[in-house]
């Protein structure tokens, strides 16, 4: 057996698996989106129905807000933790990366514990504040799982910045605020683009959190779920899935071309 044959043999299981369980199902998904009464016109229908459009708009809005806030919080915290050494730093870092392995459902439960009817905020505030099931609750849930992902990417980039860059700016007379704007943030830009794209795509496709919170707003994944299970409208569920997948995939693709290949996973 030659080396080339062996290489092909090594690749064979992967090829078979992804053909059977990725390529063919995706083709089937595309075909079934057109299998309804409307045919391919379903994509036009999707854009005409206010229910789908408003779901899309709300999903985009929440995801964009989460991306902005997660970037702000995680960049601040990430820069601080990457540039300072103090006692307790390791503990703070573990707390901030803890939710990495939490599935969306658990994150939803965390938000219920914070802002649900039996939640902490409701217990300690006199005004009986319940926000878990609102758009704000959903926003907090998405923020909960976005902070660790963004933080890790930003910190990895912050630790790679040549300390001499900052020293050079200071030797030329730059005060700390200028160092931040002229040196640190430009150096972090690719990582922030990458992390922001991941946060955005993850929030767009997040299902578990919305499912647990049983939110009163319609986000796209919940609409797809109800179309499929309750209305048995397979064609529309497929079409919406494809639209959602295209949005998240292209956001990651654009971000990668902007950041030079740093975008890896959507999680």
């Amino acid at each position: 057996m030659t080396a080339r044959h062996f290489g092909t043999l090594c690749l064979l299981p992967l090829l078979i698996f992804s053909l059977a369980f990725l390529a063919l199902p995706l083709v089937r998904l595309v075909l079934s989106s057109a299998a309804g009464e409307a045919g391919w016109g379903i994509y036009l229908q999707m854009l005409q129905k206010p229910r789908y459009l408003s779901a899309l708009a709300q999903t985009l809005a929440v995801s964009a807000a989460v991306t902005v806030v997660a970037l702000a919080v995680s960049t601040t915290a990430g820069l601080y933790l990457a540039r300072n050494r103090f006692r307790g730093r390791a503990i703070l870092l573990s707390i901030l990366t803890l939710p990495l392995a939490f599935p969306g459902v658990v994150v939803g439960f965390m938000i219920i514990l914070l802002g649900g009817r039996q939640g902490l905020v409701n217990q300690i505030t006199p005004g009986h504040l319940v926000f878990a099931y609102s758009t704000f609750g959903l926003f907090l849930g998405y923020l909960y799982f976005s902070i660790p992902r963004v933080l890790l990417t930003v910190m990895a980039a912050a630790e790679k910045i040549d300390p001499a860059l900052e020293e050079a700016a200071r030797s030329l007379g730059a005060p700390p605020s200028r160092v931040l704007w002229d040196v640190l943030l430009p150096a972090l830009r690719p990582a922030m683009v990458a992390a922001g794209a991941i946060a955005f795509a993850t929030a767009m496709g997040a299902f578990g959190t919305a499912f647990t919170l049983a939110t009163d707003i319609d986000v796209l994944p919940m609409v797809i779920y109800t179309e499929f299970t309750l209305s048995a409208n397979f064609a529309m569920a497929s079409a919406l899935s494809i639209a959602l997948g295209l949005v998240t995939w292209s956001v990651l693709l654009i971000a990668r071309s902007l950041s030079g290949g740093a975008v890896a996973s959507g999680g």
Binding site: L14, L22, L29, G205, F207
Partner: peptide, 25 residues
């Protein structure tokens, strides 16, 4: 291209993939 393709499940929401699998199998 192959790497990019097998990484699709990271970019596409799980819900969409699950629908695709359900409809085929």
């Amino acid at each position: 291209v192959l790497e990019e393709f097998i990484s699709l499940p990271l970019a596409i929401p799980g819900l969409a993939l699950a629908l695709a699998l359900l409809q085929l199998y």
